[in-house]
Design a protein around this nucleic acid. Structure first.
Length: 772
DNA sequence: TCTTCATAGTTTTTT
DNA sequence: ACTATGAAGA
């Protein structure tokens, strides 16, 4: 927006300006929520550029792709697109992945190495546990995965891990943990693969063991900026200190009160004891919040003051007082969603603003479903950020596995995934033989296939033929990668493997949507190639596409239409963003704080910071809701309000019952939502002491003639018969064909037309009876 | 070897 | 309510 001549320094307050202008040594900017942190970072980069620093000598590290994009977008108009594009700006992972590919040989990898995502990691660990014949109850793949991740983030090798934690593991009867860790590393190496943590781990190794490489980057990067420093783990901290030495020309920005990633190894002491690492560190504090009303800032401040461990900082606002933070209690999660949808609609009408001014934040992704349903019923446009990402869908991962295998045939996880997809008669037994031959020789499975004479595989000739056919197909892809660009290769792979054809065979809605996803992926690949072609890159390779895709967890919300939408996302994903109106749902014990994070004070404090982050996203209004009952794990569970509500000074709060919230709902109940049944249901739940209600409760519904209600009801056999018309939330309208049972539980078989014939268990299925 | 069906276990947050 | 796994049938 500002013109290039605009004096950027004038728009900063004294603290911000001091932070921007200080470029003589290491500096730390403690930036409270909404205090203009990104502004400082962007202007600081502008400042450096204006003082003659070349853009490719500035390294700016962020924590998320979103933050990197945001900063690029802010800088480009100030310094011009061309200059901005030459900055080294991105997430830790993307920047150092680039570095690692360039110097892969220095650390014993080939440049085309694969990135294993969390699913690959878990499946490999599972395999190792099985191979070692360990009890998978004792050795849980997910917990081993996080142990390994933590070790790597602390820069520990398997040997160092064994030395430090061996005794502890032995006491816990998990003495083999370090062995699993060790094998995991071997397998990754044999597969020419790195996981997310390896990117940071090996970057450190690369820099530590290769003086010339280290000096090269020390020379190149004259100034380093790091955003969200409170979220860095030890490995990241160490990378920064390796590159910045000896001059330590760096500026890190952070807020200890917003540290919410300790589960990924983030360590607040990185920021709290930064001065020890960088002597002469200058600290700047930004305490004025420009974003939110006084009420919001003070409410959040009083909440966070309940934490014991923090840097001193007094965040204040000079904005209007605004309205108090509202606390609404509802009977159920469904009603909660409905109240939020209602409030959004009502407020939008009175404020004449747009849906994009609204956000609904929750602790877990699973909570989005009910909210979505309520918003849909209200015809409110919304978009979900995060959640199951596009690239995690089964069919997409299958296609990607072919891409991966082409670039890096040693990628065992990819090979395992697709060696028999689409089915080509290579079964589990064969795969096991292949795997064991590979581990015996400490090579990848591809090496076995590629050298059948060297490694004899004990399979019959028919199987060998199938294996060879697979091998030859992949070899062709590999050959094609040398000649064609990424899109051409992608097309070839789609055609040769028949992954689309296989789906085209049946006409279920799932397979249709899978086909669409695959087509979308191919279109995405084409776009990727086209953009680069336009930019003059004549030979866009598949490996470039993979590098980008494998680190892209948040799909670049390509909102093609400029439809204004309410944003739905987790509190974690909301960090760094702001909205005029924020609704935080599910502020309940065991949910927020999460039941997984209630065992230690440190856990609780992190959850509290997370809620602090959520509240401080709001500019004008903030509403928190909690439900007294909630559908979780297939059961309705009674919930209690979060302890955090009591932490907030009540003078900044206003308590409301869903009953006295907008009364329009009683006058004009929205079509499709039966508040009636909600209230009646919850009244039952509420009286008496029944802690958990999970059985279908007959007799609450007026069946015949009732207007279609929200898809909330459970039913018993007595109400149903063949021929009855029902409406299901997911499958739509259908006719009951027959009553039956699945493993002793009542069930019905329903014809949903295009959605197919489905068997539903009455115990779980939630649908409405339309007519009998 | 592949498919179908039944059962058990499961949900925190993300690069 | 969903997925991952295991067993039985084709």
């Amino acid at each position: 927006m500002e013109s290039p001549d605009y004096n950027y320094l004038d728009s900063l307050n004294p603290q911000q300006r001091a932070a921007v202008e200080y470029c003589d040594g290491p500096s730390l900017v403690i930036a409270g929520a909404g205090s203009g942190k990104t502004r400082v970072l962007t202007y600081k980069i502008v400042h450096l550029l204006r003082h003659g620093l070349s853009p490719d000598r500035i390294l700016a590290l962020t924590f998320t792709n979103k933050a990197a994009r945001e900063m690029k977008n802010r800088i480009a108009p100030l310094v011009g697109h061309h200059t901005a594009s030459r900055l080294w700006m991105g997430t830790f992972h993307s920047i150092f992945l680039r570095m690692l590919r360039r110097h892969a040989d220095r650390i014993g990898f080939k440049s085309g190495f694969t990135i294993y995502d969390a699913a690959d990691t878990k499946s490999l660990i599972k395999l190792i546990i099985r191979e070692l014949a360990l009890d998978d109850k004792l050795y849980k793949a997910s917990s081993i995965a996080s142990t390994i991740s933590n070790a790597k983030n602390a820069m520990m090798t398997p040997e160092q891990y064994a030395a430090n934690y061996g005794d502890q593991d032995r006491k816990a009867r998990r003495a083999m943990t370090s062995r699993i860790f060790e094998m995991y590393c071997q397998r990754c190496k044999a597969a020419n693969a790195m996981d997310f943590d390896d990117i940071l781990f090996y970057t450190n190794i690369l820099l530590k063991d290769n003086e010339d490489v280290r000096d090269y980057y020390r020379e190149q990067f004259r100034y380093i900026l790091v955003d969200e420093y409170q979220d860095t783990n030890f490995a990241q901290h160490l990378i920064v200190s390796q590159i910045s030495r000896p001059k330590n020309m760096l500026c890190v920005v952070g807020d200890d009160a917003q540290s919410i990633y300790s589960f990924r190894g983030a360590n607040i002491s990185n920021i709290i004891s930064l001065e020890k690492v960088y002597p002469g560190l200058q600290t700047f504090k930004l305490e004025r919040n420009y974003r939110s009303t006084k009420n919001i800032v003070n409410a959040a401040g009083s909440l966070i003051s309940a934490n014991t461990r923090q840097l001193h900082k007094e965040v204040y606002s000079e904005n209007e007082s605004g309205s108090p933070v509202e606390i609404i209690s509802t009977y159920s999660d469904i009603e909660e969603a409905y109240v939020v949808a209602n409030r959004i609609n009502a407020r939008k009408l009175s404020e004449h603003d747009s849906y994009e001014d609204y956000a609904v934040l929750y602790r877990t992704n699973a909570q989005s479903r009910v909210i979505e349903e309520a918003l849909r019923k209200r015809n409110i446009n919304y978009r979900i950020v995060g959640g199951t990402a596009f690239y995690q869908r089964k069919e997409v991962k299958d296609a990607l596995a072919y891409f991966r295998l082409t670039i890096n045939p040693d990628d065992d996880e990819a090979l395992r995934r697709i060696i028999n997809y689409p089915a080509r008669g290579i079964g589990e037994t064969t795969l096991k033989k292949l795997q064991s031959a590979a581990s015996d020789a400490d090579v990848s499975m591809w090496q076995i296939l590629d050298n059948p004479d060297k490694y004899k595989l004990p399979v019959n000739s028919g199987t060998m033929k199938k294996l060879n056919a697979f091998h030859d197909m992949i070899s062709d892809f590999i050959g094609d990668d040398g000649k064609s660009n990424a899109y051409e290769l992608g097309q070839l792979i789609f055609n040769r493997t028949g992954i689309l054809l296989v789906l085209a065979h049946d006409n279920t809605p799932e397979s249709i949507s899978r086909q669409e996803n695959l087509s979308e992926m191919l279109a995405g690949l084409k776009e990727f190639v086209d953009i680069r072609l336009e930019e003059g890159d004549s030979n866009v390779k598949m490996t470039d596409f993979l590098s980008e895709v494998q680190l892209a967890t948040d799909q670049d919300e390509k909102d093609k239409d400029d439809e204004k939408r309410v944003t739905l996302m987790t509190a974690h994903a909301a960090k760094g963003l702001e909205f005029k109106h924020v609704y935080i749902v599910g502020v309940e014990e065991e949910l927020f704080p999460s039941s997984m994070a209630m065992s230690s004070l440190a856990d609780i404090e992190e959850e509290r910071r997370l809620l602090y982050v959520a509240i401080t996203r709001a500019k004008e209004s903030c509403v928190m809701t909690y439900a007294k009952s909630r559908f979780r794990n297939g059961q309705i569970k009674m919930m209690n309000p979060s302890r955090f509500i009591a932490d907030i000074n009540p003078k900044y709060l206003k308590f409301a019952d869903s009953d006295d919230s907008p009364r329009e709902k009683r006058h004009s109940p929205p079509e499709n939502i039966s508040l009636h049944s909600l209230h009646e249901t919850s009244a039952h739940r509420h009286t008496g002491t029944n802690p958990i209600v999970n059985a279908p409760r007959p007799g609450l519904r007026k069946v015949s003639g009732a207007a279609p209600a929200g898809i909330v009801a459970q039913h018993t056999k007595d109400e149903l018969a063949a021929g009855v018309k029902i409406e299901h939330g997911k499958f739509g309208i259908g006719i009951i064909l027959s009553l039956g049972s699945i493993s002793g539980e009542d069930s019905i078989s329903v014809d949903f037309g295009v959605m197919g014939i489905r068997k539903l268990m009455l115990k779980y299925a939630r649908f409405n009876i339309l007519e009998s």
